[in-house]
Structures are given as C-alpha cells and as structure tokens.
Design a protein around this nucleic acid. Structure first.
Lengths: 338, 338
DNA sequence: TTGAAAGCGATACCAA
DNA sequence: TTGGTATCGCTTTCAA
C-alpha cells in the first residue's frame, strides 16, 4: 500500500502538500495539484484511516445503535439504518453498527477508544439509562426518539403526539365518535419506549379536545393477542366505528381478524394506521395512514450530527410534522350514513 | 483522555509494559500487572483505536455489506446483521455497516483505507461484479451466499438446494404428486441472486428424482402478483395439491388468497415455507417450514473471518444442512384420503 | 521480567 | 505557494 510519502516523492512535492491537495485546506497551484493527483491515481493511494484519525482526531465514523429485540418493528429499523448509512456517505462518513444490548458499555467503549466522532441512538426510552453516559462523552450524540429529559442531547423524531392528533382529527372529521387505539405490545410500554408514550399522550389529549369517546389498548402482535385486543375493545367500547393502529406487526392480523368477523373496512369500521408508506400500501386494502418517515428522520439525525461536529448551531429537539394520507380504509361511519 | 503514557507513569512502569499487560503477549509479574491494571481503571484508560490500528495493522473491525433493496426480505437481513454484530463482539470486533449500493467502490474504499480487517458480504449474485475486486483486496472476505465461481473466497450459507429437496421429500412422503414452487420476485431471479437459483436447481432436481409433477413460478410480493402467480399455477398445473413458498414477503398474502378462494390449508392444499422459524410461527396457521438459520449463518461467517485472520485452516465453502419442521400446514392430499 | 526507542502514516503548525 | 517536521498514541523489536 502506497503511503503519502510515496505519493509526495512521485509527484516531487512534500508530504504536506499532498495532504493539502487532499483536504483542500490551503490553496495549491493548478500545476502541482495535477501532478499530485496523477501520482495518487497512479499509485492507487488511499490515506490510512487509523493514521488519519490519530493525527486529526477525526474518524469520519458515526456510531449507530439499533435495538435487536424483535418486538420493535424490524423493517422500520432497517429503514432508519439504511437512511443513516446513506446520509452518512453523503457527508463522507461511515457507520459503525452497535446493538442496544451492549448497553452503556458499548457506547463508552467506542467513544472512549475514539472509534467514532458522534453517536446516533435509536429506540430511546423515557428514562433511558444511557443518557447520563452519553452526556459525559466527548463525542456528541443524536437520539432518534425523545426521552423525558433530553437536556443537552439533540433529539430528532416524528412528532408522534401530533401524529395521534392527526389520526383522530381525520376520523372525527369523517364523523366518528367512538375510536379505539390498538397500540404496541405491552412490553414496549413497559420499558417506557418514547414514541409509544408520546403517541398515547397525543391520542388522549386529542380525544378530549375533539370530544371523542375513546379507549386505548396495547396489543401483542400475534394471533391471540390481536383477538384478545379486539375483543376487549368491543367489550369496553361497544359501537366502536374506527381503529387507530399503532402496531405494524399486528396491522395485518387486525385486518384479517376484522374480515373473519365479517366487519368490512371501511364500511363497518374505519382503520387508520401509523406506519411507513410502503407498509400501508401493501396491505390487502391500501390504508389511510400517518407516515413514519424513517428516511427523513434518519437523514435529519445525520445532518444534526454533522452540525454538532462542526459547531454550527442547532435546534436541540426537532420533531417532524406528521402527514396523513387518506386511502381506502377510512370513511364516514355507517351510523352516520343511515 | 488518558494515554498509555499516563498509565505507565501512574503505575511506575514503561509504556511497553502497559501494552503487554493489555495484550498479554509477554509474561508480566503479578505485582506489576496489578499496579498497571489499577492505574488503567483509575484513569479510565481506553486505547486509541486509530493509534492501535496504525501501530499494529489491525483495526478489529469487520465490514458488513447489506442490500438495501426492499425486494429482498428485510427482517431476514436484519437477523443476519444482528447475528454478525453479536458474533463479532464475542471476538472483540466491531462492525462497519456498508450498503450494497456503494458497490465495488465501497468495498475498495474501506479496504484500501485500512478501516477493516475483513469483509462479510451479503446478497451475492451468480456472477457478482464485486468478486474480482474482493479477490484483489489484502483483507480476506466471506460471502453469505454462493456465487457461480467462488474460487478463493470463503462462502457460507444455508444449503438451499438441499432445502428444496427437503421440502419436496416431505410433501412426496405425504403423498403429494403435484407441487408448485412460489418463488421470489422476478427481479431477484433477474439479477441472478445466488440463493434463489440454488433453490430452484434443487427443486428441479428433487422433483425429477422423486418423480413429481412440478412447476415453478416467480412471485411479485404484492396483492396482484400473488393472485397472478396462483392463477398461473392453477392453469398450468391443475390439481396441484401443495405449494412450496420461497418468498417471505408473499407468504402471508398467499395464505390469504388461498383462504379467500375457499381452499383450506392443509385440507385442500399443503404449504411448506422456506423462512425463519419465527415467521413460520407467526402466520395465521403455524407453517411447516424449512428454517433459514440466519443466526447460525451470520455466526459462521464471523467465525470464518476470524479463522482467515489468524491463518487457521478453513473449509472454503460451508453450506449448512436444512432442517424441516412439520407444523400445521402440511398433510396428505385430499385425493389420497378420498 | 522490564525498558528504550523506532516506527506506523497521516495532519497541521511554523517557516520560507 | 510550498516545505520541513513535530506530533498524534500505540506496538514491537532489540537490549538489558
């Protein structure tokens, strides 16, 4: 492998000049630039990442911490991850993949050993134990999610409170008065998952504001869980005319169960899903949905990390406004039409 | 951040001694070892990864290249990825996440700049353009998959040919004579995806061996695609009594369509799926399936990379034997019972 | 059993 | 506009 010295020799310049040609941090005459670039190409020179990191105190690597539990939605996580990788490449950074199960220790390990310039953390909980650790690191971090006390840490996410309000507003506008929320699994709530709680909060507030009769129910994403959930809803909120489903794993099964029970969507019951666009489109019926813009959120997380890294000012908490798209699963309630 | 020199000073030894305590590459008296370790703990010392890489020519990082297209099964990819990360941590390595869309350039970039010690590449195609590039790298690579000419590159995967044979054997044993394969999307075949072709080959061979009447059909994983696929199958292979489904995205829809058409599983038609265990279990009906052991394959890939890195001998191609588990979706054909 | 010191391959400061 | 060179923090050879 050629080194910067080899290149310098071949181009008849000093190593520092080669370095400056590469970084563009000082003016270089056209002539030398060309000679240097020719030498670089000729020798197939690629700067040694470790040497660079040592000399510059920059690794050009971001850490990305993903959950590996399966009760969180896997395809969505993957969408976030690829968005982060893609956006990172645009900014000349690579991504080191960590799993949440390494916990605080993993974050500290990569940060203390200077493997990364910044950290992006997914699946944040209300009182995430990792926060205090993150605050002590010399590298900045960006959360995808919003803990109770985000003090000092940048956060980006969809505005789940507004998303819930949006879903209810849409249903209320159609004339629905009794609406139930099919939420994530109990486990997700139990560990205080940020987005789940925020959605719940938004749902409750909007329900009151709009004067609706609502109820909320967690839902285990398996056949039995879905059945039990729907049964509870029918028992506790008889005459329910619409469901808001914030549980992608369960979504398809909810639709199946409704069909099995002979309840047509949207004729007998409306459904609004909270999920990525492609999921909503790939259901038996194209669903009215509030999009989870994984790509945008991932991109924004990287953008935020970059701003943090070069000291530009940032908004510490950025919640993207939700977008509801009406498709085929929502309509006025049957009673309103009768 | 404390450096090795700080630790050395605090412990009253030379930096090299600290280094040896850390690496264990030479005997250290119990006394000094303790003093050094105390100093390390006291100062919270973590060796600088870049400096280490520079001095030792080892990064302790593996590159993992994942597809980001959505026509390949996302949850399975995620399973592979987490398996690779988990296994890597066991061997004190971290994982740099690359996406396939960076192509050959991405591989060369991380390899030439010495960011990684080895590469693990997923979603390998028959004549993968990346192979020649991989062969010229100074870092070893491990493919998850099996190209036509794997010469010189380690490959690990499920034995998809055997998996197909296993599925057919099971159905034949139940008495089925007419079996159709619902395969991956046309796009997957078109780009010569290794596992898809191997499964197809195995299916065809086993079909002949077992003397079955079979047909194969790609399947676009959306509502229309599934309908079209099933219609074609009925037209071309009337009286079909069993399906082998090698398409996770479509799996659920296949079951739905069968139900809609009033065909009961397994009473009217048997279904054998090729998919991870948890997917098979989370269907409306627990499916008889050949498992895709993502965890094992990912672990084996890392294991292979490690052996390559420390020069131990390896089997260049390792295909894991398939396991079929009979659940509720397969039974003797109705005609046999009549 | 331990220490001294020469690299590893860049960056960036100080000069010219 | 360019060059010289100290420096980053560690590993490892050579000596003792």
């Amino acid at each position: 492998m050629a080194t910067i010295n080899d290149v310098a020799r071949a181009a008849g310049v000093s190593p520092s000049t080669v370095s400056y040609v590469l970084s563009g941090r000082r003016p270089i005459s056209a002539g030398t630039r060309e000679r240097v670039q020719a030498a670089i190409a000729e020798l197939g020179f690629h700067p040694h990442a470790g040497a660079r990191a040592l000399a510059s105190s920059k690794t050009n690597v971001l850490a990305l911490v993903v959950p590996l539990r399966t009760d969180v939605n896997v395809p969505v996580i993957m969408q976030f991850a690829t968005a982060v990788v893609t956006a990172s490449r645009v900014h000349n950074h690579d991504v080191l993949l960590l799993t949440k199960d390494e916990g605080t220790a993993g974050l500290e390990r990569v940060a203390h050993s200077t493997m990364v310039d910044a950290l992006i953390v997914m699946d944040v909980e209300r009182d995430d134990v990792r926060l205090t650790a993150l605050r002590t690191l010399k590298q900045p971090s960006v959360l995808i999610g919003l803990p109770e006390d985000p003090a000092g840490i940048a956060c980006v996410d969809l505005d789940f409170e507004a998303a819930a309000a949006e879903a209810l507003r849409h249903l209320a506008w159609h004339g629905h008065r009794r609406v139930a929320l099919v939420g994530p699994s109990p486990a997700v709530y139990k560990r205080g998952t940020s987005y789940a709680e925020r959605f719940l909060t938004g749902f409750t507030i909007a329900s009151a504001t709009l004067g609706l009769e609502t109820m909320t129910h967690p839902c285990e994403p398996d056949r039995e869980g879905v059945r039990a959930c729907l049964a509870d809803i029918d028992a506790q909120l008889p005459g329910v005319t619409a469901l808001v489903v914030h549980n992608e794993e369960a979504l398809r099964m909810v639709l199946e169960e409704l069909q099995t029970a002979g309840r047509r969507v949207p004729a007998d019951i409306s459904v609004v899903a909270i999920c990525p666009r492609d999921v909503a489109l790939n259901m038996p019926l194209p669903l009215t949905s509030v999009d989870i813009p994984a790509h945008d959120v991932g991109g924004l997380a990287v953008e935020t990390a970059m701003r943090l890294l070069d000291g530009r000012s940032i908004e510490l908490v950025r919640l993207l406004p939700p977008t509801l798209v009406e498709r085929k699963s929502s309509a006025p309630p049957a009673t309103a039409a009768d």
